[in-house]
Design a protein around this nucleic acid. Structure first.
Length: 872
RNA sequence: GGGGGCAUAGCCCAGUUGGUUAGAGCGCUUGUUUCACAUACAAGAGGUCACAGGUUCGAGUCCUGUUGUCCCCACCA
């Protein structure tokens, strides 16, 4: 056998990963003899650097896919990256800025060249980082949202939606980022509360008779006002409806219109209406046929419609407008006011609502079947509560603005003829106008990144080409993601899958939380509190990182990453390493490692426990209860296998009896192998490495079979007996500690056992593990004449002659304490059994169990009382 | 305004269909360098499960309300 180092050192991780890859163990192929299990990896952005969010997401997926693979599925985990249109473009623009270049300088083609070069250079970085985590994805199927397949799917989807009337182009109010200079979807706007003011000022009536006071948070937009609205039910305001106002600082005359949108009692009861720069005003404008006047340009500066303010930044203009209103006597008052301001999710710039000609996806017809799919459980959210979030969004969804004024992305397949105004939407390039023969030019804009991500579950499998991968692996099994992209991505995949494939894209959506720092704060660049997973891997190993991310997580809940946790997980891996090292170093050449035909009590106990763990962990993993599964394996490995079973194997190993040695080693390797298999999805590197130390050439853990529950190796009687043995040993150790007897000082003991045959068979364990020099069995305490102290357990009474070491007062105290505990127990159970309703209604098993407990407790109490009496 | 999460040991968290003695890890106390592991071993202390009601033979677990806290959505100018 190979030698193992004394301390676990994860330096073998790279070698193991290469071994897996060379063996093509990650690859999955359509196989009619197996059931497919498919996970599509949420594609990280090519601009991305691995962060803890990725690490958690990847760990969860890898645990599931490794488990399913071992459990006999044709398990495909398909990886890939996202072109991240806006995020990448922003980065490239920044980089060009360093060189003193702008997009205009290099032109569209030059820009795209740079973008692709950038993708080649950095796109692979995140992939290499994922590999360090041990991700077992099928890299031969790695996809990219702008590769040939995915782009074909995008064209196919766009044209199909267009032909069905689900995509249209029109002037609508959209969110505009003046920094990125592109339209954004509603989902791409984040809101944050900001302190501002509510400015009150007057609009005089055109006939010179009086005025209306309005209140606004955005004085500068008044330059684009085309009406003032009041609620017709507002008695104070209703009389003004239909009268005309003169808009200050301009020559414009605007009407007072009546609309329910205005809330009575808020502000002044009159609202300035700027259809070009406010979504609500835009809607109201449509209802009243108001003029739409844009005063803010694409760069966030006031445009020519703003008269003398033209060219000013919007905030600069705000100050100027307020100054001018004040100077001209229109300003009434200014009140401090907190309100939410929309910001671009990529650059943080305040987003402007502007009217603009864009492409939209009509959402209502797509949302309906997508809602139904979840209602009818075709798609299930885990945990269930996220369905509500989903329904709430889907039921209130507005049309999706999909065009972006960017260059990096899928260019919109629409072609325009400048001569006759004809527009053609087509998968193939259109150069000549079919109507007038004039030249056609393609739409300049690209599609929202999420448009292509929405097709990910099938575009990665070769759609629109019909092929075996697609028919075998689609629909996929489970989608694993954090809750923060349910709207961006999950919801859109669901309606896209239904529309394009006529089938939901996945059966289940497993939602996990986000990784927070030790203080519970979100990790972020601006806070600088992010922890780099790669540094953690360097320091503790990928397995320790994975295990620390996997333990204690519950679906949908956030988790904190702390140094203490990673250390304890590294210690666990080290524990496993050393337990294995112990097993491996005890394997001798001529040991027969085949499963023993005769099992001893300890074997039967550990096998029973192992079976239970196999059963429970399998159930947990099938339900994606990863945190629970990890905790059970941690406890079983450490507290049962290492602390007890290995200790109990030592007498056999060191007995000098060849047969006993063989037996012990065979059992140890068997149980260890089962443990390695069970732990493999969580800590794949170290388990594979350990396995290679003894399993023989060509053995591969990751492709081995998942342990099965085996009724034949379940022994409930021995399990119970051994629990009693453990209790007895712990009780003796406890007494030793309380009496301050060092472990090095051995002493003899008399045992009165309930089941003497069993206790005799395990006397060796008591001697070894409790520091007893020799055990003498007696049937009654009268047989012992020495001065003894004693411990009483459910299955035995242990009498220890400690001679002078016995401190009578201390001993009395100890016994009294124990008696008090037992009596409290008797009281509790007695009370319970005295309750006729409990006896009548509780399950018989439970009642019997309690009766048994009572009997045992009473017996123990009697013994303790005897002891106390004997002391005096 | 609407929706949701959380509240359990000093700290950070588990607790799977209610089953009666609530568990880990870290920290703490005591002892041990015992031939796999001091990244360890052994023993131990520590919790009225936020509060108030209710359902039940039985509630950390289910229901109602209250308080605190966090998040998501909407965006009354």
């Amino acid at each position: 056998m190979e030698k193992m180092d004394k301390t676990y050192n994860p330096e073998f991780e790279k070698r193991i990963y290469d071994f897996w890859q060379k063996g093509k163990f990650f690859e999955a192929h359509p196989n009619d003899d197996k059931e497919p299990f498919t996970i599509m990896m949420p594609p990280p952005n090519i601009t991305g650097q691995l962060h803890m969010g990725h690490a958690l997401n990847q760990t969860v997926q890898d645990i599931i896919i490794r488990f399913k693979r071992m459990a006999g599925y044709e398990a495909l985990w398909l990886p890939g990256t996202d072109h991240a249109s806006i995020a990448t473009e922003v980065k490239i623009v920044e980089k060009m800025k360093e060189e003193g270049l702008t997009k205009a300088d290099v032109g569209r083609e030059g820009f795209l060249e740079r973008a692709w070069a950038w993708k080649e250079q950095y796109g692979g970085r995140i992939v290499e980082q994922l590999k360090r985590l041990g991700t077992s994805c099928d890299w031969s199927k790695e996809a990219f949202t702008m590769d040939k397949n995915c782009s074909a799917a995008v064209l196919d989807a766009f044209v199909r939606y267009y032909k069905k009337g689900l995509i249209y182009r029109g002037d609508r109010i959209i969110n505009w980022c003046p920094h990125c200079k592109t339209a954004l979807s509603d989902a791409e706007v984040e809101y944050s509360e900001q302190q501002s003011n509510l400015w009150y000022y007057r609009y005089p009536f055109a006939d010179g008779d009086g005025y209306v006071t309005i209140a606004t948070t955005r004085p500068e937009t008044m330059l684009g006002d085309t009406a003032v609205a009041v609620n017709p039910k507002d008695e104070k305001m209703a009389p003004y409806v239909g009268r005309m106002l003169k808009l200050p600082l301009t020559d414009r005359i605007i009407p007072v219109v009546a609309d329910d949108y205005v809330e009575i009692g808020f502000g002044t009861g009159a609202v300035k209406i700027t259809p070009a720069h406010d979504p609500n005003d835009f809607e109201l404008g449509l209802r009243h046929n108001l003029e739409v006047i844009r005063v803010i340009g694409d760069d966030g500066r006031m445009n020519e419609n703003a008269g003398k303010y033209c060219g000013m930044d919007r905030l600069e203009c705000r100050k100027a407008v307020v100054e001018d209103l004040k100077a001209q006597g229109y300003l009434e008052k200014i009140e401090p006011y907190a309100h939410n301001v929309g910001e671009c999710y990529r650059c943080g710039e305040t987003v402007e609502a502007i009217v603009s000609k864009q492409w939209f996806v009509k959402m209502k017809p797509l949302a309906e079947p997508a809602i139904k799919a979840v209602k009818t459980k075709k798609v299930e959210f885990i945990p269930r509560r996220f369905e509500k979030t989903y329904f709430n969004w889907m039921e209130n969804i507005k049309d999706w603005c999909i065009s972006r004024q960017l260059w990096w992305g899928h260019r919109i397949p629409a072609y325009y003829c400048d001569d006759c105004g004809e527009m053609v939407v087509s998968k193939n390039e259109v150069k000549v106008c079919p109507k007038c023969g004039g030249a056609m030019r393609q739409d300049e804009d690209v599609l929202d990144t999420w448009f292509s991500s929405a097709l990910w579950p099938f575009s990665t499998l070769g759609y629109p080409r019909k092929n075996k991968n697609l028919s075998y692996f689609y629909p996929t099994s489970v989608l694993v993601t954090a809750y923060d992209i349910i709207f961006f991505w999950v919801a859109r995949m669901i309606f896209s899958g239904i529309e394009m494939m006529n089938e939901v894209p996945f059966d289940e959506v497993l939602i996990h939380g986000i990784v927070r720092d030790a203080e519970g704060r979100k990790m972020s660049k601006s806070l600088g509190n992010g922890i780099d997973p790669l540094e953690i891997i360097d320091k503790y190993g990928a397995d320790a990182l994975r295990f620390s991310l996997a333990t204690g997580i519950a679906p949908g809940s956030d988790t904190r990453f702390t140094e203490g946790k990673i250390e304890s997980c590294r210690n666990f891996v080290n524990k496993l390493w050393n337990a294995s090292r112990f097993v491996v170093m005890n394997i001798e050449k001529d040991d027969d490692l085949s499963f023993p035909t005769r099992l001893n009590g300890a074997d039967k106990w550990i096998l029973t426990r192992l079976n239970d763990v196999v059963k429970e962990v399998t159930i947990n993993l099938n339900k994606y209860e990863i945190g629970l599964a990890a905790a059970k394996l941690y406890d079983f490995t450490w507290s049962e296998f290492c602390d007890w079973y290995i200790e109990m194997s030592k007498p056999m190993l060191y007995s000098g009896d060849k047969k006993a040695h063989s037996h012990a080693v065979a059992m140890l390797t068997y149980v260890l192998t089962q443990i390695l298999k069970l732990l493999h999805p969580f800590i794949p590197f170290v388990t594979e490495e350990i396995y290679s130390k003894y399993a023989g050439k060509g053995s591969v853990l990751m492709t081995s079979e998942w342990p099965a529950y085996n009724k034949k190796t379940v022994f409930r009687k021995e399990e119970k007996n051994f629990e009693g043995l453990r209790e007895t040993i712990v009780a003796i150790r406890n007494m030793r500690a309380e009496m301050n007897v060092p472990v090095s000082k051995k002493f003899g003991a008399y045992v009165i056992a309930a089941d003497e045959k069993f206790m005799r068979s395990v006397a060796g364990y008591i001697e070894k593990m409790a520091g007893i020099s020799s055990v003498t069995f007696v049937s009654d305490k009268s047989e012992v004449t020495e001065k003894v102290t004693s411990v009483v357990t459910h299955c035995a009474e242990v009498l220890v002659p400690l001679g002078d070491l016995i401190d009578t007062d201390k001993e009395r105290e100890r016994l009294q304490k124990e008696l008090a505990q037992v009596e409290a127990d008797i009281a509790r159970v007695g009370n319970l059994l005295g309750n006729a309703a409990f006896v009548a209604k509780a399950p018989q098993k439970l009642v019997d169990g309690e009766r048994e407990k009572l009997a045992r407790a009473q017996e123990k109490a009697a013994k303790l009382k005897d002891k106390l009496a004997a002391l005096i």
